[in-house]
């Protein structure tokens, strides 16, 4: 499986013995996992350091060795969630896939990850926006160039006339609605619509419909690769 996160990756790669920081790493992972669980259960605002250290079975001192405060811990947690989503999208398709295919496969993989990890979805898509509304712009600035880049790097011209920012807005509302209704696990059911939204601005209505059709008929799980 892929590496768990992005932190401490420069340590101990070729070292046959147990890395010195293994205890610290697992502590940090436990803190982050606790943060995800508790935030999803009771919101970031209601989450206390005591909740986190209790759930992670660490001391308060240990918590503060890793993070200066609750917000810093949340930010690190969010980075990990985003990295996990990006990594799943990135490994869901082959380098030779045409852009619309790649976007379809990436979208389906992300939806399945969110459905499989509802707490992660709640934190990355719900709580994050409450904690820092500007996160929405950060997401947009990550997502739209990444999607557009598929077509540009494949040397294909952009054929859509729909505004990508509208696509992002549609996704925002759709995800918010699903989260608010407690239907995160049903997100994969919306894969035709979400694939359509992701493809439309870059390849146009007909191609977006074609990908939506493919997404609907594809079996669940990332069986493609």
């Amino acid at each position: 499986m892929q590496k768990q996160g992005s932190f401490d990756s420069d340590r101990g790669v070729l070292d046959p013995t147990v890395p010195l920081d293994i205890g610290a790493r697992s502590q940090r992972e436990r803190i982050v996992e606790a943060m995800i669980e508790i935030c999803a259960e009771k919101s970031f605002a209601a989450t206390t350091i005591a909740d986190i250290v209790g759930r992670a079975s660490i001391s308060r001192t240990t918590f503060y060795k890793h993070f200066v405060d609750k917000r810093a811990c949340f930010d690190a947690t969010l980075d990990l969630c985003v990295n996990e989503l990006r990594s799943v999208a990135g490994t869901s398709h082959d380098a030779t896939d045409p852009p619309a295919e790649a976007v379809r496969k990436g979208t389906v993989a992300v939806l399945e990850l969110l459905a499989a990890k509802p707490a992660l979805a709640q934190v990355a898509l719900g709580e994050a926006v409450t904690v820092d509304p500007a996160i929405v712009e950060r997401y947009r600035d990550l997502l739209l160039p990444a999607l557009e880049g598929r077509w540009l790097s494949a040397g294909e011209s952009l054929r859509g006339s729909s505004d990508p920012r509208i696509a992002f807005g549609r996704l925002q509302i759709l995800f918010f609605d699903q989260l608010a209704g407690g239907r995160v696990k049903q997100l994969p059911e919306l894969r035709p619509e979400i694939v359509y939204i992701a493809v439309l601005p870059f390849a146009g209505h007909e191609e977006a419909l074609r990908q939506a059709r493919l997404a609907a008929t594809e079996m669940s799980s990332d069986a493609g690769d």
Partner: peptide, 22 residues
């Protein structure tokens, strides 16, 4: 309603709402 997009009205309402919100 295109057969491919059974939940299309969510998209439609979301289009306007997201932009108005912004």
């Amino acid at each position: 309603v295109p057969a491919e997009l059974p939940n299309i009205t969510s998209l439609a309402a979301g289009t306007a709402l997201a932009r108005i919100y912004e």
